[in-house]
Design a binder for these strands. Structure first.
Length: 684
RNA sequence: GGGCCCGUAGCUCAGUGGUUAGAGCAGGGGACUCAUAAUCCCUUGGUCGGGGGUUCGACUCCCUCCGGGCCUACCA
């Protein structure tokens, strides 16, 4: 046998601003199958992934939830892990881009780029949210299409979905920030760029070598990017931004989320290595390591241009292959919330067996970038017919005849069936290796199509009636169960649970691909237990219904142009003018809520402990109980009046006041601070 | 407008120069009753999108037209 390969595999890092859905799972299941296949072949293969946690969208989501970005991404991290585990997607490490390991790698790569003189600085005109000061990506601005012949309202800042014209968000008429609902302000700020053109020749060679990319990907890159000089890549965003600060910029600049996201593959590898006492350089600089990325076609250029360039400059291993897949459609159409076909992983798991989806995706996935369609009727029919009707049925119809005797001591004559199935091993392996899973599955199913007629002809149920033919009965079942086991081995990357159940039934572990070459003989057979339920169409329907409902419930109101009522001002008219000196007497400080708890017997009060940074702590009783749950508050930044004279209250001493607006009761709104503010900073 | 892919039985697809084009599902008929109304046998069904060309020979190669999908449209 050839030497074991050492393979590092990644799937794209899911963005931490939403739950995993069936579209995501195409990739994670595709990758999981590949990793399991490699390990079954005796290679050393690790599956590395992480949450992609930075950027404007995360800041917005966190704010909507009233928590810090860190809390928000921690919550998503748990949810993602749960979803993946539910589908038997097993990562060796599932990290986060917001980790110290990732920061180390970002800084290392950044230094390399700087040392090679590939970083430039330039002013960029862009839009900012007038309330939060955040940069607004085009997609976060909506307004009226600037095309004079169109004028459609409520369009995103990158293009118009009515007339199809493209433009910059700056050109939109009556633009509105989707973050605060206010008009954005135009501003100029300094950005850092990578001179990627310096790597043009290298990228030409690397992408066109035919070794690393699918042909259509190489063509796409060549015609769209490589035939002209590559533009500088904008890799920074001005503060405030949730991400890593660029060293030496004094908190003014952060790396753009797409700079640190792919580096997250390395950061996550290092997390894993630390846990295992390994050196991550073994994986990212070692000569004998292969690196394989699995991604969707939407993020090709990041992974096939910028990423190899960065790795190259910093002296890391380049990917051996970037495997790119298409998108998922359901019943021939884009997944749609309205149709109920935008199904979350967690929703699927409430109604259906994860193995069914794994099998169906495997049966659909090929080595190319075509979208794959999940036809729900076909899904039901295929899983029921193939797995339950043909494969599991083999065991289900024979196992109990040999429950008391076990398998025959010598493998009987089976007309060459076992040998034939064993001889296809290389062909199936090649199909898995090249991600041609539908071919692999087809080849395996042919075996089941030969095995069932064998059982039919041998008729063990008839043999059973004649005690004189007990040996024959045992032989027939020995053949059937060995044919079944071969199938279970071949499909074990796709259906790990079925492989486990087969191990339990036959009392022998499935550890290696080559187990298909040797029949089991003379071993006991455990009582048969159902291995997989048939899919009931009603369950699919219920899943669709639930997806439709939850989508309706979650429909977020569109930001309205501001038409504020004068109610609040009338209710509480402006106070008399004060001087700046009056104002500065009040020392307002940013503080972080370190704990929050209910006060027994108090109607309105929550007891908060606030940190002003370092060891400074203040206990404050705040009348916000009807508006906030304590757990919502922990970790949040608030503004406090810090030099207010302490006041003795019924429940203890209150050493300040947190600032909030609203008439009271449940209508209380705490003041927060934009990302980047630090506890202890004075508010001026 | 450009790039890529696809168009084979009702449906999903296999088949890349060589016997009368295949499979699964669905349809029809039958068998069995071990098995999760699973299984097995037989069977209906295709001018391989249209046209032209290369070839002794094309679903398979070339050209062209028609139809569909994805990407892209001087943004990444």
């Amino acid at each position: 046998m050839s030497k074991a390969r050492k393979i590092l595999v990644t799937a794209a890092l899911p963005y931490a601003n939403g739950p995993i859905h069936l579209g995501h799972l195409v990739e994670y299941i595709q990758t999981d199958i590949w990793v399991r296949f490699q390990n079954l072949r005796g290679n050393r293969c690790i599956y590395i992934c992480a949450d992609d946690t930075h950027g404007t969208a995360i800041m917005k989501s966190a704010r909507q939830r009233g928590c810090t970005e860190e809390q928000f991404v921690a919550m998503m991290h748990d949810a993602h892990r749960r979803d993946f585990a539910g589908f038997d997607v097993e990562f060796d490490n599932y990290g986060s881009t917001n980790s110290p390991e990732n920061r180390e790698y970002c800084e290392e790569i950044w230094r390399a780029l700087q040392d090679k003189g590939l970083i430039a600085q330039r002013q960029v005109v862009e839009l900012f949210d007038s309330q939060t000061g955040e940069t607004l990506p085009d997609r976060f601005v909506k307004g009226t299409c600037p095309n004079p012949r169109c004028g459609a309202t409520d369009q995103y800042g990158d293009n118009c979905d009515r007339c199809g014209s493209t433009y910059s968000a700056i050109d939109l008429i009556d633009p509105i920030s989707t973050i605060s609902g206010t008009p954005p302000v135009k501003g100029e700020s300094e950005h850092f760029f990578v001179n990627i053109e310096a790597l043009h020749e290298f990228l030409d060679e690397w992408t066109q070598s035919g070794e690393h990319l699918q042909d259509e990907v190489a063509n796409y890159l060549k015609s769209h990017f490589l035939e002209a000089p590559l533009r500088d890549w904008d890799v920074s965003r001005p503060a405030p931004y949730f991400g890593f600060e660029i060293p030496g910029t004094h908190g003014r600049h952060y790396w753009y989320v797409w700079f640190d996201a792919p580096i997250g593959y390395m950061g996550s590898t290092r997390e894993w290595c630390k846990r295992r006492g390994e050196d991550s350089d073994e994986w990212w600089r070692g000569e004998s390591t292969e690196i394989h990325h699995f991604i969707g076609k939407d993020i090709q250029y990041f992974h096939c241009l910028f990423w190899p360039a960065m790795l190259r400059v910093a002296g890391f291993n380049l990917p051996d292959k970037v495997h790119i897949h298409g998108f998922l459609t359901v019943n021939g159409r884009k997944m749609s919330k309205r149709d109920g076909t935008f199904v979350m992983a967690a929703t699927y798991l409430k109604h259906l067996d994860p193995a069914a989806l794994r099998y169906y995706y495997a049966a659909k996935l090929g080595p190319r970038l075509d979208d794959i369609d999940m036809n729900l009727d076909e899904f039901v029919a295929k899983v029921n017919a193939d797995i339950v009707g043909k494969v599991v049925n083999l065991a289900s119809r024979t196992a109990k005849f040999v429950e008391s005797t076990g398998l025959s001591p010598v493998y009987p004559d089976d007309g060459g069936l076992f040998a034939q199935a064993a001889s296809v091993a290389d062909e199936i392996a090649a199909a898995y290796e090249s991600c041609d899973y539908n071919r692999a599955v087809r080849l395996v199913l042919e075996m089941a199509d030969r095995a069932n007629p064998y059982v039919e002809n041998a008729a063990p149920w008839s043999l059973k009636k004649d005690p004189g033919r007990a040996k024959e009965l045992q032989d027939v079942c020995t053949v059937a169960l060995n044919l079944f086991r071969q199938i279970a081995v071949y499909l074990s990357p796709v259906l790990p649970r079925l492989a486990k159940q087969t191990e339990e039934l036959l009392g022998q572990p499935i550890r290696h691909w080559d187990e298909v070459q040797t029949p089991l003989v003379g071993t006991p057979v455990a009582p048969f237990r159902h291995m997989m339920q048939r899919i009931d169409k009603k369950d699919v329907q219920a899943m669709i219904e639930e997806s439709r409902e939850s989508a309706l419930g979650a429909e977020s109101p569109k930001p309205q142009p501001l038409q504020d009522s004068d109610e609040a001002l009338k209710a509480e008219p402006l106070a008399p003018t004060c001087t700046i000196d009056d104002f500065t007497k009040v020392d307002l400080r940013i503080a972080r809520v370190v704990s929050a708890e209910h006060v027994p017997d108090a109607e309105k009060l929550l007891k908060l402990v606030l940190s002003l940074g370092g060891e400074e702590r203040r206990t404050v009783f705040a009348g916000i109980k009807k508006a906030y749950q304590p757990e919502q508050l922990v970790g949040r930044m608030v503004v406090m009046a810090a030099n207010l004279a302490p006041r003795k209250m019924k429940f203890g001493l209150s050493e300040g006041m947190v600032l909030a607006s609203g008439p009271g009761g449940a209508e209380v709104f705490l003041l927060g601070a934009d990302s980047g503010a630090k506890p202890g900073q004075r508010v001026h």
